[in-house]
Design a protein around this nucleic acid. Structure first.
Lengths: 184, 184
DNA sequence: GTCTATAACCAGATAGAC
DNA sequence: GTCTATCTGGTTATAGAC
């Protein structure tokens, strides 16, 4: 079942925007990527403008991120929790790439940031403080430790995406080391 | 002592490229930012093309980052070292923004990545393994711990820029928490 | 070195035949 | 819905006077 032209435009727009930025992609590029004649205005039978297709792309990715978000494990180990956060960030990598490349120009910027915060970056200082109070992990500056963990997770993801590598440390190993540091 | 026109073009090019991306800045914008008549071709008396000024901007930032890097303190505590790395990354924020926004189009991409990796943290896995062998810090997966430290430091910057805020944890407190985690 | 003026080109967008 | 053809405007880059 071949996707309709509108969906093919959305698909090629997402991948091209992520790869080359919004300004790096022309309407002609989108037509070509969707199997339409390059330079024909056929694009405009499906979207009113380039901004219009950008808005549709972002809306679709927000819906996808919200719907396929796996349930956050409750009461699990720290390691599982960190692995979950890294996986979620990886699933939302297209949206993250759009945000960091063209953040200021994105429509629904607040909704994008909300979805990302809920899906990947909520590492709770309160949870850490609870574990410290129960003697589960050593007592440290809980807010500062939460910040270290959050930025380590985000940094790992962004490095994977933008800096060409993670020093050979995959997500599982990274999560394990993070849990080891916090736990003792 | 007013800077020459060439330097003023470089200064405005750096700040405008960082703010709006390479494609978001026209040669006319650069002329205006450098105090030249907008739309006059005076820019071309100083640079052959827009790519040429981009290359000059990146070269200058690489040189600046490299010269700052030599100011690294030697033989200090882990905490001092992490604080130094955070300050250094903060000074290189323009280069980081260029890399994230327009990475694929940057000239000397490999040199940019090398400078940032060296300037962001010198805590390599070998140094950590040495400290572990001497009993200075607990024995853990040295490569993975080095990755956590590097990405925490880098993420502290990137997350502030793209996800909003540092959770109220300043650089000194962040460095102290990072050192505490690695040291015990 | 800077200006006015403009050439050459490319991108977003529209009109109308089929 | 897709095409050919075109308009309009903005961008890079050059020519030549001062």
């Amino acid at each position: 079942m071949a996707a309709g032209t509108r969906d093919r435009i959305l698909d090629t727009a997402l991948s091209q925007f992520v790869a080359r930025g919004i300004d790096g992609v022309t309407v002609t590029d989108l037509e070509h990527g969707a199997g339409l004649a390059a330079g024909s205005g056929s694009f405009y039978r499906h979207f009113r403008s380039k901004d219009d297709v950008l808005s549709a792309v972002v809306d679709r990715e927000i819906d996808r991120a919200a719907s396929r978000r796996s349930a956050e494990p409750v009461g699990g180990s720290l390691e599982d929790h960190y692995a979950w956060a890294l996986d979620n960030l990886h699933r939302m990598r297209a949206l993250i790439a759009l945000l960091v490349k063209d953040g200021a120009r994105l429509p629904h910027l607040d909704r994008v940031q909300t979805v990302l915060a809920e899906g990947g970056t909520r590492i709770d200082a309160v949870d850490l403080a609870d574990r410290m109070a129960r003697g589960e992990i050593p007592v440290r500056d809980a807010d500062a430790v939460a910040a270290v963990v959050l930025f380590a997770v985000v940094g790992h993801h962004l490095a994977e995406r933008f800096f060409g590598g993670t020093l050979g440390v995959d997500r599982e190993r990274f999560a394990a080391a993070l849990a080891s540091l916090v736990s003792s």
